[in-house]
Amino acid sequence: MVLDERPPTGSAAWTGGWPGTIGEFERLVDAFQDPLVRFAFRRLGNRADAEDVAQEIFVRAYADRRKRQTVANVSAYLYRMTANLCVDFLRKRERRKSFSLDEAHVLDIPSRDPDSARLAAAAEEVRRIERLLSCIPPTQAEAVRLCLFDDLTTREAAEILNCPEATVKSRVRYGLEKLRELARENKEDIR
């Protein structure tokens, strides 16, 4: 399932307006389920959390469909909602750090699901990359995430961030230059 050839997704697969019927909505889910889960995963480092966030986005998108008919760029809007919800989620996760039995994760069981090892490795990669991105200003880090993690063009990233494309370009550029400098200072591969 991981290696399947899949049809285009995300903005490449969605040119219409906000879906109004369940049938249209199902097509929206088809188009955006992988991009939004991937987008959230690369911010949260956990597929279950990422799917919770993406599910919330889709459910809200449906519940608010009448209010959203005027949204011009559905893709940018969904990404923006997901980014905001990821930020909320991370804040809540931070707040949860005071002790609770939830920490005990009583039902944790190792999984033989072939996906689990890959997801664990992907999660570790997210943590490594986030450690690096924490060294640059948040606005630059977010522009880098959008352009590098999510394979969006700088124009698409600008629509999501609601700023001029030139701003996105400069943020990405300065972000990468800062990371390059850090690598030099550390005199080692930042991997």
Partner: peptide, 19 residues
Amino acid sequence: TIRPSHEIHASPYFKEKIM
């Protein structure tokens, strides 16, 4: 260096849950 190398997809039952 900072481009994620792992491809991530929604789990098979994700869409069903939403629908």
